[in-house]
Design a protein around this nucleic acid. Structure first.
Length: 418
RNA sequence: GUGGCAGUAGCUCAGGGGUAGAGCCCCGGUUUGUGGUACCGGUUGUCGCGGGUUCAAAUCCCGUCUGCCACCCCA
């Protein structure tokens, strides 16, 4: 244990159960995205460090896995996908009909201290609509993120999508006389409001002509604060998803590039963690790619959502069922007579050609042992190949029923049972 | 980056200045072609690493690494 190697800090091994759990979440992401007509794309895992500096400034480097490659280039393991997406979309935007509905599932790296729900490496689902200015796109993203949660087995008792409007906040700030260059700082203060003591909050606001009660009053106005919010509420209500939605102007999101609606999905009752977040970023493609294109999107990481699934009864049952379905096999071929081993592997191959998940004991073993292996592998059926070959026995392991048939009839017999 | 807790068998952990423990897992067996149970038996450790105190350290002290949790941050 002390000898040998371990994973690097913040990195994970995925043993089969964990890998299946991960893939289960990936499949939900992928299936729901495709249900919404999104197409999948992928970008490089290594990018020029400048791509990230351009968007976020030089301080970002402390959070990057960056190094110099053998050609002396300053490169980084990607910490997020949006700059890559912006580059890709901008470079070939004329090749695609608008709006683009793109999603991606990939691995990301951030050089930071590893803790619950956060590692130095993680997977993230990214979902974006590009080239669509209308609020319908924001609503579509809200809906898809809600449907991912529903598909995972969560109900309105488990989570809420909290939506806000960054534009409403900047309008509010301007009306209160906050200068344009001060707005990022102002929004930062609002973003931290929930984590700040009231007296510190008041002190932070002192530089502006805004009082805490002005802020509170604005937050109370809810969806009256903007037409965007009203449209989103009406849209999701029409979809029958209104119960998952909550207008909450306290959501601002730390990122500077959001320009319109922003939203986060929160679990309720299990610690109020944010499991997904996103919003509209109409200026970013121009900044990164030089192309003027409206955009909105959101992302969901694998660590928080998987923790939440594990802690929630019904979602966890679905996950466990997914894992065992992924690992179980259709047929275990039992070699009852070692002289018939070659006939048995022939049967195995024919079953596999017919797309049955098939396994068998590679070394001689007593029948009891082989049945145990069949059980352990979650086999639905056992086929016994012995002295009677080409007659074989087909046994349904759950029902403990056994029939005899010829090896040639076996495939048809199994297919009829599917 | 800051702070709290932890590290003993593959896993979960108990113990505690003087032959290293339990449960689970894994492997084998309970007589020769039929299964999750039950019973019997078996393997595995420099007690995270380095140093100090001591006749003696897994145990006490210091350091270090790793993990977990919280804060900061969160694209």
């Amino acid at each position: 244990m002390s000898k040998g190697f371990q994973t690097l800090k913040g990195f994970r091994d995925f043993y089969p159960d964990e890998c299946d759990a991960r893939n289960y979440v990936f499949n939900v992401w992928r299936n729901v995205a495709k249900r919404y007509g999104f197409v999948e794309y992928e970008g490089p895992i290594l990018e020029p460090t400048d791509l990230y500096k351009k968007k976020s400034g030089d301080e970002i480097v402390t959070q990057l896995f960056c190094f110099e490659d053998k050609g002396g280039r300053d490169v980084s393991m990607r910490p997020e996908l949006t700059p890559t997406l912006a580059r890709m979309a901008a470079a070939r935007q004329r090749d695609f009909k608008k709006p683009l509905r793109w999603f991606s599932i990939g691995q990301f790296f951030r050089y930071e201290k590893h803790q619950k729900g956060r590692g130095r490496e993680f997977y993230q689902f990214n979902c974006d609509i590009l080239g669509e200015e209308s609020v319908a796109a924001d609503a579509e993203l809200a809906a898809i993120s809600i449907d991912i949660m529903r598909e995972l087995g969560f109900t309105a008792d488990d989570f809420r999508l909290r939506v806000s409007d960054r534009k409403a906040w900047t309008d509010f700030a301007e009306k209160k006389g906050v200068g344009e260059e001060q707005i990022p700082e102002f929004l930062q203060i609002i973003d931290k409001k929930e984590r700040t003591k009231p007296e510190d909050f008041e002190k932070a606001l002192a530089t502006f002509q805004v009082t805490p009660s002005d802020i509170e009053q604005f937050i109370q106005s809810g969806s009256d604060a903007s037409e965007t919010l009203q449209t989103i509420v009406a849209d999701l209500t029409a979809r029958g998803l209104g119960e998952f939605l909550e207008v909450d102007l306290r959501i601002v999101r730390g990122l500077a590039y959001y320009t319109g609606a922003v939203f986060e999905i929160f679990d309720i009752g299990k610690g109020m963690r944010a499991v997904a977040g996103g919003g509209r970023y109409d200026q970013l493609l121009k900044l990164v790619g030089g192309v003027d294109m409206a955009a909105c999107g959101f992302a969901m990481g694998d660590m928080v959502i998987t923790d939440l699934v594990r802690e929630s009864e019904k979602p966890n049952q679905l996950l466990e069922a997914g894992i065992s379905a992924s690992q179980s096999i259709d047929v275990f071929v039992i070699v009852a007579d070692e002289d018939r081993r070659n006939d048995a592997v022939n049967v195995v191959q024919r079953l596999r050609d017919a797309n049955f998940r098939t396994a068998y004991a590679m070394t001689p073993a007593k029948m009891g042992k082989q049945f145990q292996s069949a059980e352990q592998m979650g086999a639905a059926n056992a086929v016994i190949v012995g002295t009677e070959f080409p007659q074989v026995s087909l046994k349904n392991l759950a029902e403990r029923t056994e029939v005899s048939c010829s090896a040639d009839e076996l495939i048809a017999e199994l297919q009829s049972r599917k």
